[in-house]
Amino acid sequence: MMTGFTPLAATAGGALIGLASVLLMATLGRVMGATGILAGVFAPSGPRDLDWRLALLAGMMTAPFLWLAATGAMPVIDVPVSRASMVIGGLLVGIGVTFGSGCTSGHGVCGMARLSPRSITATAIFMAFTALTVFVTRHLIGA
């Protein structure tokens, strides 16, 4: 399935992701890492550690409806893989980000912005393994 190059939307979207990361640090002093924010919901250190996570998640989940109001349609979510790939992929993502202490937002954006050696290493590894997995599933197995 082809998708078109969307440089303006990609740049503007990336700027908003960066802006949100900066604002979360400026207000709550927290890293905008999806993994850490979500994991903390299930093991908060107290009520003051839970409320902001829920508010942040509620804000995130309002975005598709803001999109609907602005464009008249829900965001495009095309899933070009099988349900088995989604379920196995989901399991591996959950296990991986827990042991790896972060994902694209936490390591790839916030950690890299702090020049953290752990985040730079993690990002290089997961980007390489993602590309490798796509190559194997699309060109070796799926070809």
Binding site: G90, L92, T104
Partner: peptide
């Protein structure tokens, strides 16, 4: 960190979703 990140990469490559892309 190393094995977890590699595992996450395989999962991201299978599904196309990372946690930050999924949550919203």
């Amino acid at each position: 960190l190393v094995l977890g990140s590699a595992t996450f990469g395989v999962g991201w490559g299978l599904s196309g979703f990372c946690p930050g892309g999924l949550l919203p």
